[in-house]
Design a protein around this nucleic acid. Sequence first.
DNA 1: CCGTGTGAACCGCTTCACAGCG
DNA 2: CGCTGTGAAGCGGTTCACACGG
Lengths: 228, 228
Amino acid sequence: MKEPVPDVVIQRLPMYAHMLRALKEVGVESIGSRELGAVLRTTPAQIRKDLSYFGKFGKQGMGYNVGQLLDELTQVLGLGRPWPLALVGTGRLGRALIEHKGFVDDDFRMVAVFDKSPRRIGKKLGGLVIQDAAELEQIVKERGIAICIVAVPPGEAQRVIDAFVRAGVKAILNYAPIVARVPKSVQLRQITPLHSLQSMTYYLKSEYPTSGSAAKSRADGKTRGSGV
Amino acid sequence: MKEPVPDVVIQRLPMYAHMLRALKEVGVESIGSRELGAVLRTTPAQIRKDLSYFGKFGKQGMGYNVGQLLDELTQVLGLGRPWPLALVGTGRLGRALIEHKGFVDDDFRMVAVFDKSPRRIGKKLGGLVIQDAAELEQIVKERGIAICIVAVPPGEAQRVIDAFVRAGVKAILNYAPIVARVPKSVQLRQITPLHSLQSMTYYLKSEYPTSGSAAKSRADGKTRGSGV
DNA sequence: CCGTGTGAACCGCTTCACAGCG
DNA sequence: CGCTGTGAAGCGGTTCACACGG
């Protein structure tokens, strides 16, 4: 209910909104923090606390009105309008992202696609003509694009990000596995599935011991099916 | 450096390893926590503390040997061996994930691909024959697959995840935007780019005020170019 | 001396517990 | 009475600062 809302809270909001949308569609009109917490796998306290940063949306003894709370969160997150998006990189990843329509909904609309390869420039992709990455800065400025998606090879990612920043972009979703540098005023989210895999293995290595690797041989290492 | 290593620490390790690999390739043989922190955009203290959970890898006054530290982290994370991977869902997303080779490196190898659509079963994808999702449980068990990737539509994701869990899988990378349920013994990582976008907009909405949204009409809303 | 390893201080998020309102 | 909203306690991770080793 004060100014500095913790970052983690903001990042949980989309999940809340997502669930509320689902509940609304199913016809649920009202829900308590206990139930919402159960379905979201968090605690009721967490939910109440999170929401309290933005106002008082519930009625004591009654819980929250699903539709109303969804509207509030939509408002808080700045959604409910079509943010224009740009994407650079139309390799497999970029094409998949566009065609998969993972983000094209009411809140986002892809309005520009770039690539630097002459082979691709001029072709159409997802209803848009692929434009020369050299014109990125100008076009992004012209169209007032605030959010962009980077799907180029690692070696080019920082260059592309710099161009976006110069163009005034304020939020970047980066799929390239690099440690990107952006001004503090620019939001950056990293999508690096390989790192997710590499951290999960930490928890697995005891159950699935090495078959040889570092040096110490291990006769069998067949711990697998056991826990199943 | 005791037993319960914080989860966040584990999740930073892949980034450290990644950077060390890059440094090694460039020929850097030794690095201090200060420099490593600078390039990774963290603090030296953080790095030293993180590493201290696993042992003493540095030499005072000298910093860390890049190659050696990389080996240690590889060991800690349980990498340096080819973990077999399975993927379900060969729609645009699934195909892109496979063909993009985002995770196929020395540490991971895709060994099975599933789909439930008869149109796709039997076709080849990334050198593998797409198999009937109905056989998922059996095949995953047979091949001792511990990690899997879910790239099916939201409505099917939980079912698929349940099947994987029954098959004994211990780590799941899920691309479907759902609140997945898994036993605590199973690692789960969620890749939900849309939520990343939806949380970034929170920080943008003040700079790019609404053009209309929730109800209140707003004559123009052309605040765009200003901040650029 | 320089830089690591680390206990201790610090800070921020989470959880608790209860006052207050429907 | 039930459940929200919230100050305060609890807890875990980050940062500090310094002892110690090369």
